[in-house]
């Protein structure tokens, strides 16, 4: 009975996996750091979740849609945001608005390249990621610009073991999950993702829907860059590097269909926690680095296979 319900909700694998890893880590570290481990995993999952939301919006909009420019948009927005604020607390709202605008524009640029140049999304976003990365290089170049002190304080603010930013991102994720299910746009996005032709016949402006999903992806990537720069003390050219693979893996493990048309926002949290706890656990076990990569790869394949099997059968 229980296994039946898990099979119907493959995204639960992320949460279950995260829980198992958490317990294993606590046992190995002799129960010393339960709260600290949880805190560390939560703190870094925030950024995994934000980039994964970007990726989810794009992937859901239909087969073949993917955004490889997530790390570049993240880096570009971090540089522009930090550059605009220049360490001044008063400029934080301006910085946030500029980052949002740049993120939206970057996403729109991606979709424009796909639509106007008729490029497959994988090529278009790969190419544009070079453009964005070069812009970031020119915007910031060789210097790390420090974030305003208030932004840094806010990103690492926590009440007890609970990070305030994490709570906000959890609320955002819940809002998004409800929005995808209930809102008009959410329905249109899922319909477009399932069959663009059918959606068009049903009167949905699918191009507009996909434009919004790409622009939204840019927005969330930008937001991730803005907050990550605040959390880690500044923008750096390679700050986005780890988030390309991670954004895709987290989304897929979180129960979103690679084929599009099926999104799962809540599942993202489970798989983000899972991935971050996996890193923590393998580090704590002092696994040699070669084995660490091997295990990470093997575990991803295992879980994704297990999690997606019911979908392919039905």
């Amino acid at each position: 009975m229980q296994s039946h319900s898990i099979r119907q909700s493959p995204w639960l694998f992320g949460f279950i996996g995260a829980a198992v890893l958490f317990v294993a880590t606590i046992i190995v570290s002799r129960g010393g750091g339960a709260s600290a481990t949880f805190h560390a995993a939560m703190a870094f999952s925030i950024f995994s979740v934000l980039v994964a939301i970007s990726q989810m919006l794009v992937i859901t909009s239909g087969p073949g849609n993917i955004d490889l420019s997530v790390p570049a948009v993240l880096t570009l927005c971090a540089y522009i945001g930090m550059g605009v604020m220049h360490g001044s607390n008063a400029w934080i709202p301006v910085g946030l608005l500029v980052v949002a605008a740049v993120g939206l524009l970057a996403g729109a640029f991606n979709y424009a390249a796909i639509l106007l140049l008729r490029l497959p999304p994988i090529i278009a976003t790969l190419a544009s990621s070079f453009v964005f990365q070069s812009l970031a290089m020119n915007a910031g170049g060789d210097a790390t610009i420090k974030p305003p002190s208030l932004l840094s304080a806010f990103t690492s603010l926590s009440v007890g073991p609970v990070s305030v930013l994490a709570v906000l991102v959890v609320l955002l994720t819940i809002g998004l999950a409800i929005g995808l299910k209930r809102s008009l746009f959410g329905r249109r996005l899922l319909a477009t993702g399932q069959s663009e032709a059918a959606a068009r016949f049903a009167g949905i402006r699918t191009r507009q829907v996909r434009l919004i999903s790409y622009a939204g992806a840019g927005l969330f990537s930008g937001l991730a860059g803005f907050l990550l720069a605040g959390f880690t003390g500044g923008a750096a050219l390679n700050m986005g590097d780890t988030y390309l693979m991670e954004s895709i893996a987290v989304v897929v493990l979180g129960g979103t269909s690679v084929a599009g048309g099926q999104a799962n926002a809540i599942g993202i949290w489970g798989s983000a926690l899972f991935f971050n706890l996996l890193t923590i656990m393998l580090n704590s076990f002092r696994t040699p680095v070669g084995l660490r990569y091997l295990l990470t790869g093997a575990i991803i394949i295992l879980i994704v296979t297990a999690a997606t099997r019911p979908l392919t059968r039905t």
Partner: peptide, 11 residues
């Protein structure tokens, strides 16, 4: 920062 934060609780 990420890697050190992750391993600290076990050290």
């Amino acid at each position: 920062q990420k890697e050190v934060s992750g391993i600290l609780p076990s050290l």
